[in-house]
Design a protein around this nucleic acid. Sequence first.
DNA 1: GATAACATGTAACTCGTTACATGATTCC
DNA 2: GGAATCATGTAACGAGTTACATGTTATC
Lengths: 182, 182
Amino acid sequence: MNTLSYGLLGMLARKPCTGYELTKMLKLFWQAKHSQIYPLLAMLEQEKLVTCELIGQTGKPDKKLYTITEDGAAALRSWIDDAPAGESIERDEFLLKVYAIGLVEPAIALRLFQERTAALLERLQRVEAELEIMQADPTIVKDSTSKQFGRYLLYRRKVGLLREELSWIEWATPLINVNVEV
Amino acid sequence: MNTLSYGLLGMLARKPCTGYELTKMLKLFWQAKHSQIYPLLAMLEQEKLVTCELIGQTGKPDKKLYTITEDGAAALRSWIDDAPAGESIERDEFLLKVYAIGLVEPAIALRLFQERTAALLERLQRVEAELEIMQADPTIVKDSTSKQFGRYLLYRRKVGLLREELSWIEWATPLINVNVEV
DNA sequence: GATAACATGTAACTCGTTACATGATTCC
DNA sequence: GGAATCATGTAACGAGTTACATGTTATC
Protein backbone atom coordinates (compact mmCIF):
# COMPACT_ATOMS: atom_id res chain seq x y z
CA MET A 1 0.00 0.00 0.00
CA ASN A 2 1.68 3.15 -1.21
CA THR A 3 0.47 6.74 -0.86
CA LEU A 4 -1.39 6.71 -4.14
CA SER A 5 -3.43 3.69 -3.01
CA TYR A 6 -4.66 5.66 -0.02
CA GLY A 7 -5.36 8.58 -2.28
CA LEU A 8 -7.60 6.37 -4.39
CA LEU A 9 -9.39 5.14 -1.29
CA GLY A 10 -9.91 8.74 -0.25
CA MET A 11 -11.54 9.61 -3.56
CA LEU A 12 -13.70 6.50 -3.41
CA ALA A 13 -14.81 7.44 0.11
CA ARG A 14 -16.55 10.45 -1.39
CA LYS A 15 -18.38 8.45 -4.03
CA PRO A 16 -17.99 5.28 -6.12
CA CYS A 17 -15.92 5.93 -9.21
CA THR A 18 -14.42 4.28 -12.25
CA GLY A 19 -10.66 4.24 -12.83
CA TYR A 20 -11.18 6.69 -15.63
CA GLU A 21 -12.92 9.18 -13.35
CA LEU A 22 -10.30 8.75 -10.62
CA THR A 23 -7.51 9.54 -13.06
CA LYS A 24 -9.10 12.87 -13.89
CA MET A 25 -10.13 13.77 -10.34
CA LEU A 26 -6.74 13.01 -8.92
CA LYS A 27 -4.97 15.29 -11.37
CA LEU A 28 -5.46 18.36 -9.24
CA PHE A 29 -3.82 16.87 -6.13
CA TRP A 30 -1.62 14.00 -7.24
CA GLN A 31 -0.60 13.36 -10.82
CA ALA A 32 -0.89 9.75 -11.96
CA LYS A 33 -1.56 8.17 -15.31
CA HIS A 34 -4.23 5.54 -15.90
CA SER A 35 -1.54 2.90 -16.41
CA GLN A 36 -0.62 3.30 -12.78
CA ILE A 37 -4.15 3.54 -11.44
CA TYR A 38 -5.80 0.51 -13.05
CA PRO A 39 -3.39 -2.03 -11.57
CA LEU A 40 -3.70 -0.42 -8.14
CA LEU A 41 -7.49 -0.67 -8.27
CA ALA A 42 -7.19 -4.37 -9.08
CA MET A 43 -4.91 -4.75 -6.05
CA LEU A 44 -7.32 -2.86 -3.78
CA GLU A 45 -10.07 -5.17 -4.91
CA GLN A 46 -7.98 -8.24 -4.11
CA GLU A 47 -7.28 -6.83 -0.67
CA LYS A 48 -11.03 -6.35 -0.26
CA LEU A 49 -10.65 -2.65 0.41
CA VAL A 50 -12.92 -1.90 -2.55
CA THR A 51 -15.57 -3.81 -4.47
CA CYS A 52 -16.02 -3.70 -8.21
CA GLU A 53 -19.16 -3.72 -10.29
CA LEU A 54 -19.06 -4.16 -14.05
CA ILE A 55 -21.43 -1.82 -15.83
CA GLY A 56 -22.27 -2.50 -19.47
CA GLN A 57 -22.91 0.55 -21.61
CA THR A 58 -24.20 1.03 -25.11
CA GLY A 59 -22.36 3.42 -27.37
CA LYS A 60 -19.53 3.64 -24.85
CA PRO A 61 -17.11 1.01 -23.57
CA ASP A 62 -18.15 -0.98 -20.51
CA LYS A 63 -16.88 0.38 -17.24
CA LYS A 64 -15.98 -0.79 -13.76
CA LEU A 65 -17.44 1.05 -10.84
CA TYR A 66 -15.39 0.75 -7.67
CA THR A 67 -16.90 1.22 -4.22
CA ILE A 68 -14.99 1.46 -0.95
CA THR A 69 -15.68 -1.26 1.66
CA GLU A 70 -15.84 -0.91 5.44
CA ASP A 71 -12.32 -2.39 5.60
CA GLY A 72 -11.20 0.16 3.06
CA ALA A 73 -12.67 3.06 5.02
CA ALA A 74 -11.03 1.76 8.20
CA ALA A 75 -7.65 1.48 6.47
CA LEU A 76 -8.05 5.00 5.12
CA ARG A 77 -8.95 6.41 8.53
CA SER A 78 -6.03 4.80 10.31
CA TRP A 79 -3.68 6.06 7.58
CA ILE A 80 -4.91 9.62 8.11
CA ASP A 81 -4.64 9.23 11.89
CA ASP A 82 -1.32 7.46 12.23
CA ALA A 83 0.90 7.82 9.19
CA PRO A 84 3.59 10.40 9.83
CA ALA A 85 3.47 13.44 7.54
CA GLY A 86 5.16 12.35 4.33
CA GLU A 87 7.07 15.13 2.69
CA SER A 88 5.50 16.96 -0.20
CA ILE A 89 7.08 16.79 -3.62
CA GLU A 90 7.08 19.59 -6.14
CA ARG A 91 8.76 19.30 -9.52
CA ASP A 92 8.13 22.21 -11.77
CA GLU A 93 10.23 22.79 -14.87
CA PHE A 94 9.13 26.41 -14.95
CA LEU A 95 10.85 27.07 -11.62
CA LEU A 96 14.15 25.65 -12.88
CA LYS A 97 13.91 27.91 -15.90
CA VAL A 98 13.19 30.97 -13.78
CA TYR A 99 16.22 30.15 -11.63
CA ALA A 100 18.44 30.75 -14.67
CA ILE A 101 16.36 33.55 -16.15
CA GLY A 102 19.20 36.07 -15.85
CA LEU A 103 21.00 34.24 -18.67
CA VAL A 104 18.38 34.64 -21.37
CA GLU A 105 17.16 37.67 -23.26
CA PRO A 106 14.38 39.68 -21.61
CA ALA A 107 12.04 38.87 -24.50
CA ILE A 108 12.40 35.15 -23.77
CA ALA A 109 11.92 35.76 -20.07
CA LEU A 110 8.73 37.67 -20.70
CA ARG A 111 7.39 34.96 -22.98
CA LEU A 112 8.04 32.41 -20.25
CA PHE A 113 5.93 34.42 -17.81
CA GLN A 114 3.19 35.01 -20.36
CA GLU A 115 2.86 31.30 -21.09
CA ARG A 116 2.73 30.55 -17.40
CA THR A 117 0.06 33.18 -16.87
CA ALA A 118 -2.08 31.67 -19.61
CA ALA A 119 -1.78 28.19 -18.09
CA LEU A 120 -2.56 29.51 -14.60
CA LEU A 121 -5.61 31.42 -15.77
CA GLU A 122 -6.99 28.37 -17.50
CA ARG A 123 -6.61 26.26 -14.40
CA LEU A 124 -8.05 29.00 -12.23
CA GLN A 125 -11.17 29.15 -14.37
CA ARG A 126 -11.79 25.42 -14.09
CA VAL A 127 -11.23 25.38 -10.34
CA GLU A 128 -13.42 28.42 -9.73
CA ALA A 129 -16.22 26.95 -11.83
CA GLU A 130 -16.13 23.75 -9.76
CA LEU A 131 -16.03 25.77 -6.54
CA GLU A 132 -19.16 27.68 -7.47
CA ILE A 133 -21.03 24.42 -7.94
CA MET A 134 -19.94 23.29 -4.48
CA GLN A 135 -20.75 26.61 -2.84
CA ALA A 136 -24.31 26.41 -4.14
CA ASP A 137 -24.84 23.51 -1.73
CA PRO A 138 -24.77 24.77 1.88
CA THR A 139 -24.26 21.30 3.41
CA ILE A 140 -20.91 20.92 1.65
CA VAL A 141 -19.67 24.28 2.84
CA LYS A 142 -20.88 24.11 6.41
CA ASP A 143 -20.75 20.50 7.52
CA SER A 144 -17.16 19.53 8.23
CA THR A 145 -18.15 15.88 8.49
CA SER A 146 -19.67 15.85 5.01
CA LYS A 147 -17.98 13.57 2.53
CA GLN A 148 -17.57 16.58 0.25
CA PHE A 149 -16.00 18.87 2.81
CA GLY A 150 -12.33 18.01 2.29
CA ARG A 151 -12.63 18.43 -1.43
CA TYR A 152 -14.20 21.83 -0.89
CA LEU A 153 -11.30 22.91 1.32
CA LEU A 154 -8.79 21.78 -1.28
CA TYR A 155 -10.48 23.70 -4.07
CA ARG A 156 -10.44 26.82 -1.93
CA ARG A 157 -6.74 26.27 -1.29
CA LYS A 158 -6.05 25.82 -4.99
CA VAL A 159 -7.80 29.06 -5.90
CA GLY A 160 -5.75 30.93 -3.32
CA LEU A 161 -2.47 29.50 -4.52
CA LEU A 162 -3.23 30.09 -8.20
CA ARG A 163 -4.14 33.69 -7.51
CA GLU A 164 -1.02 34.15 -5.43
CA GLU A 165 1.22 32.92 -8.22
CA LEU A 166 -0.57 35.16 -10.71
CA SER A 167 0.03 38.19 -8.54
CA TRP A 168 3.67 37.17 -8.18
CA ILE A 169 4.03 37.20 -11.96
CA GLU A 170 2.37 40.62 -12.09
CA TRP A 171 4.94 41.85 -9.61
CA ALA A 172 7.91 40.23 -11.36
CA THR A 173 7.12 41.16 -14.97
CA PRO A 174 7.94 44.89 -14.78
CA LEU A 175 11.24 44.05 -13.07
CA ILE A 176 12.34 42.27 -16.22
CA ASN A 177 11.42 45.16 -18.46
CA VAL A 178 13.54 47.66 -16.56
CA ASN A 179 16.76 47.27 -18.57
CA VAL A 180 14.95 47.07 -21.89
CA GLU A 181 12.69 50.07 -21.67
CA VAL A 182 15.43 52.71 -22.00
CA MET B 1 19.52 14.93 -20.70
CA ASN B 2 16.47 15.00 -18.46
CA THR B 3 14.92 17.98 -16.68
CA LEU B 4 16.99 17.53 -13.54
CA SER B 5 20.21 17.75 -15.58
CA TYR B 6 19.16 21.17 -16.84
CA GLY B 7 18.23 22.13 -13.31
CA LEU B 8 21.74 21.31 -12.18
CA LEU B 9 23.19 23.37 -15.03
CA GLY B 10 20.98 26.25 -13.95
CA MET B 11 22.29 26.12 -10.41
CA LEU B 12 25.87 25.89 -11.65
CA ALA B 13 25.29 28.91 -13.89
CA ARG B 14 24.89 30.99 -10.75
CA LYS B 15 28.09 29.74 -9.16
CA PRO B 16 30.35 26.67 -9.10
CA CYS B 17 29.08 24.11 -6.61
CA THR B 18 29.73 20.66 -5.24
CA GLY B 19 27.17 17.88 -5.56
CA TYR B 20 26.54 18.18 -1.86
CA GLU B 21 25.65 21.86 -2.15
CA LEU B 22 23.47 21.27 -5.21
CA THR B 23 21.46 18.65 -3.35
CA LYS B 24 20.59 21.13 -0.64
CA MET B 25 19.98 24.10 -2.92
CA LEU B 26 17.74 22.16 -5.22
CA LYS B 27 15.49 21.02 -2.40
CA LEU B 28 13.34 24.15 -2.52
CA PHE B 29 12.48 23.80 -6.21
CA TRP B 30 13.01 20.19 -7.22
CA GLN B 31 13.47 17.34 -4.77
CA ALA B 32 16.29 14.95 -5.57
CA LYS B 33 18.53 12.77 -3.43
CA HIS B 34 22.30 12.80 -3.68
CA SER B 35 22.21 9.28 -5.16
CA GLN B 36 20.51 10.73 -8.21
CA ILE B 37 22.61 13.87 -8.46
CA TYR B 38 26.14 12.47 -8.29
CA PRO B 39 25.75 10.20 -11.33
CA LEU B 40 24.19 13.05 -13.32
CA LEU B 41 27.11 15.33 -12.53
CA ALA B 42 29.51 12.66 -13.78
CA MET B 43 27.48 12.47 -16.98
CA LEU B 44 27.47 16.26 -17.43
CA GLU B 45 31.25 16.22 -17.06
CA GLN B 46 31.58 13.52 -19.73
CA GLU B 47 29.41 15.59 -22.04
CA LYS B 48 31.73 18.55 -21.34
CA LEU B 49 28.86 20.69 -20.11
CA VAL B 50 30.65 21.12 -16.78
CA THR B 51 34.23 20.82 -15.57
CA CYS B 52 35.29 19.30 -12.31
CA GLU B 53 38.03 20.32 -9.91
CA LEU B 54 39.04 18.11 -7.02
CA ILE B 55 39.60 20.07 -3.83
CA GLY B 56 41.44 18.43 -0.97
CA GLN B 57 40.33 19.44 2.50
CA THR B 58 41.70 18.77 5.95
CA GLY B 59 39.26 17.76 8.66
CA LYS B 60 36.54 17.28 6.05
CA PRO B 61 36.23 14.89 3.13
CA ASP B 62 37.66 16.02 -0.19
CA LYS B 63 35.15 17.60 -2.50
CA LYS B 64 34.52 18.11 -6.19
CA LEU B 65 33.75 21.58 -7.40
CA TYR B 66 31.78 21.64 -10.64
CA THR B 67 31.82 24.64 -12.97
CA ILE B 68 29.58 25.17 -15.99
CA THR B 69 31.32 25.43 -19.40
CA GLU B 70 30.41 27.61 -22.37
CA ASP B 71 28.79 24.56 -23.98
CA GLY B 72 26.85 23.96 -20.79
CA ALA B 73 25.58 27.53 -20.66
CA ALA B 74 24.58 27.34 -24.33
CA ALA B 75 22.68 24.08 -23.75
CA LEU B 76 20.94 25.63 -20.76
CA ARG B 77 19.94 28.73 -22.71
CA SER B 78 18.50 26.80 -25.63
CA TRP B 79 16.56 24.58 -23.19
CA ILE B 80 14.99 27.65 -21.60
CA ASP B 81 14.25 29.17 -25.01
CA ASP B 82 12.96 26.16 -26.90
CA ALA B 83 11.76 23.37 -24.64
CA PRO B 84 7.97 23.37 -24.42
CA ALA B 85 6.55 23.98 -20.96
CA GLY B 86 6.75 20.65 -19.16
CA GLU B 87 3.88 20.11 -16.79
CA SER B 88 4.42 20.71 -13.12
CA ILE B 89 4.12 17.85 -10.69
CA GLU B 90 2.83 18.11 -7.17
CA ARG B 91 2.52 15.14 -4.86
CA ASP B 92 1.55 16.05 -1.38
CA GLU B 93 0.30 13.44 1.06
CA PHE B 94 -1.27 16.13 3.19
CA LEU B 95 -3.65 17.05 0.37
CA LEU B 96 -4.82 13.46 0.00
CA LYS B 97 -5.50 13.35 3.72
CA VAL B 98 -7.44 16.61 3.64
CA TYR B 99 -9.54 15.25 0.79
CA ALA B 100 -10.89 12.59 3.14
CA ILE B 101 -10.92 14.77 6.24
CA GLY B 102 -14.69 14.45 6.65
CA LEU B 103 -14.19 10.83 7.69
CA VAL B 104 -12.00 11.42 10.72
CA GLU B 105 -12.71 12.96 14.09
CA PRO B 106 -12.38 16.74 14.31
CA ALA B 107 -9.53 16.38 16.82
CA ILE B 108 -7.50 14.44 14.27
CA ALA B 109 -8.33 16.94 11.57
CA LEU B 110 -7.16 19.81 13.75
CA ARG B 111 -3.93 18.02 14.58
CA LEU B 112 -3.29 17.54 10.87
CA PHE B 113 -3.61 21.28 10.30
CA GLN B 114 -1.49 22.12 13.31
CA GLU B 115 1.35 19.90 12.13
CA ARG B 116 1.15 21.42 8.68
CA THR B 117 1.24 24.92 10.14
CA ALA B 118 4.37 24.12 12.12
CA ALA B 119 6.11 22.74 9.03
CA LEU B 120 5.07 25.74 6.94
CA LEU B 121 6.26 28.24 9.55
CA GLU B 122 9.64 26.58 9.75
CA ARG B 123 10.08 26.71 5.99
CA LEU B 124 8.85 30.29 5.87
CA GLN B 125 11.47 31.34 8.41
CA ARG B 126 14.31 29.81 6.41
CA VAL B 127 13.13 31.31 3.13
CA GLU B 128 12.60 34.74 4.64
CA ALA B 129 16.03 34.74 6.23
CA GLU B 130 17.63 33.93 2.88
CA LEU B 131 15.54 36.61 1.19
CA GLU B 132 16.75 39.26 3.59
CA ILE B 133 20.34 38.45 2.74
CA MET B 134 19.56 38.84 -0.95
CA GLN B 135 17.62 42.06 -0.48
CA ALA B 136 20.60 43.63 1.26
CA ASP B 137 22.37 43.58 -2.11
CA PRO B 138 20.73 46.08 -4.50
CA THR B 139 22.31 44.56 -7.63
CA ILE B 140 20.52 41.26 -7.08
CA VAL B 141 17.16 42.91 -6.66
CA LYS B 142 17.38 45.44 -9.47
CA ASP B 143 19.42 43.89 -12.25
CA SER B 144 17.30 41.33 -14.08
CA THR B 145 20.36 40.07 -15.94
CA SER B 146 22.22 39.30 -12.72
CA LYS B 147 23.04 35.65 -12.15
CA GLN B 148 21.24 35.91 -8.82
CA PHE B 149 18.06 37.46 -10.14
CA GLY B 150 16.08 34.30 -10.92
CA ARG B 151 16.82 32.85 -7.53
CA TYR B 152 15.59 36.05 -5.91
CA LEU B 153 12.31 35.87 -7.84
CA LEU B 154 11.81 32.26 -6.77
CA TYR B 155 12.36 33.04 -3.10
CA ARG B 156 9.82 35.83 -3.32
CA ARG B 157 7.37 33.41 -4.93
CA LYS B 158 7.96 30.85 -2.21
CA VAL B 159 7.29 33.35 0.56
CA GLY B 160 4.03 34.35 -1.09
CA LEU B 161 2.86 30.77 -1.51
CA LEU B 162 3.79 29.75 2.03
CA ARG B 163 1.93 32.72 3.48
CA GLU B 164 -1.07 31.95 1.29
CA GLU B 165 -1.27 28.39 2.53
CA LEU B 166 -0.93 29.55 6.13
CA SER B 167 -3.81 31.94 5.70
CA TRP B 168 -5.85 29.16 4.10
CA ILE B 169 -5.32 27.04 7.21
CA GLU B 170 -6.34 29.98 9.40
CA TRP B 171 -9.53 30.23 7.40
CA ALA B 172 -10.23 26.48 7.42
CA THR B 173 -9.51 25.70 11.07
CA PRO B 174 -12.61 27.35 12.60
CA LEU B 175 -14.81 25.56 10.05
CA ILE B 176 -13.75 22.25 11.54
CA ASN B 177 -14.51 23.30 15.08
CA VAL B 178 -18.08 24.26 14.34
CA ASN B 179 -19.70 20.92 15.11
CA VAL B 180 -17.57 20.33 18.18
CA GLU B 181 -17.94 23.59 20.03
CA VAL B 182 -21.60 23.09 20.97
C1' DG C 1 28.82 8.08 23.78
C1' DA C 2 25.40 9.71 20.19
C1' DT C 3 24.05 12.71 16.69
C1' DA C 4 24.73 16.07 13.01
C1' DA C 5 27.31 18.17 9.30
C1' DC C 6 30.54 17.44 5.74
C1' DA C 7 31.29 14.67 1.38
C1' DT C 8 30.92 11.09 -2.36
C1' DG C 9 29.52 7.02 -4.44
C1' DT C 10 26.87 2.32 -5.97
C1' DA C 11 23.12 -1.37 -6.04
C1' DA C 12 18.58 -2.86 -5.56
C1' DC C 13 14.30 -1.60 -5.61
C1' DT C 14 9.78 0.94 -6.28
C1' DC C 15 7.33 4.53 -8.56
C1' DG C 16 5.80 6.78 -12.65
C1' DT C 17 5.78 7.62 -17.86
C1' DT C 18 5.54 6.35 -22.61
C1' DA C 19 4.02 3.50 -25.89
C1' DC C 20 1.22 -0.26 -27.53
C1' DA C 21 -3.50 -2.28 -28.04
C1' DT C 22 -8.72 -1.92 -28.94
C1' DG C 23 -13.07 0.27 -30.35
C1' DA C 24 -17.53 3.12 -30.68
C1' DT C 25 -19.45 7.95 -30.83
C1' DT C 26 -19.60 12.79 -31.33
C1' DC C 27 -18.05 17.21 -32.87
C1' DC C 28 -15.48 20.22 -36.23
C1' DG D 1 -11.38 12.82 -42.65
C1' DG D 2 -9.33 13.95 -37.96
C1' DA D 3 -9.51 14.86 -33.22
C1' DA D 4 -11.76 14.31 -28.67
C1' DT D 5 -14.23 11.72 -25.16
C1' DC D 6 -15.25 7.51 -23.14
C1' DA D 7 -13.03 3.21 -21.15
C1' DT D 8 -9.62 -0.42 -19.75
C1' DG D 9 -5.46 -2.81 -19.74
C1' DT D 10 -0.14 -4.41 -20.30
C1' DA D 11 5.00 -4.03 -21.27
C1' DA D 12 9.15 -1.63 -21.46
C1' DC D 13 11.56 1.93 -19.91
C1' DG D 14 13.19 5.95 -17.23
C1' DA D 15 13.07 8.50 -12.85
C1' DG D 16 13.51 8.54 -8.00
C1' DT D 17 14.12 6.30 -3.21
C1' DT D 18 16.20 3.37 0.17
C1' DA D 19 19.85 1.09 1.79
C1' DC D 20 24.70 0.05 1.86
C1' DA D 21 29.52 1.82 2.25
C1' DT D 22 33.28 5.01 4.25
C1' DG D 23 35.47 8.46 7.35
C1' DT D 24 36.55 12.96 10.10
C1' DT D 25 35.30 16.79 13.11
C1' DA D 26 32.31 19.38 16.07
C1' DT D 27 28.56 19.66 19.29
C1' DC D 28 25.41 18.01 23.02
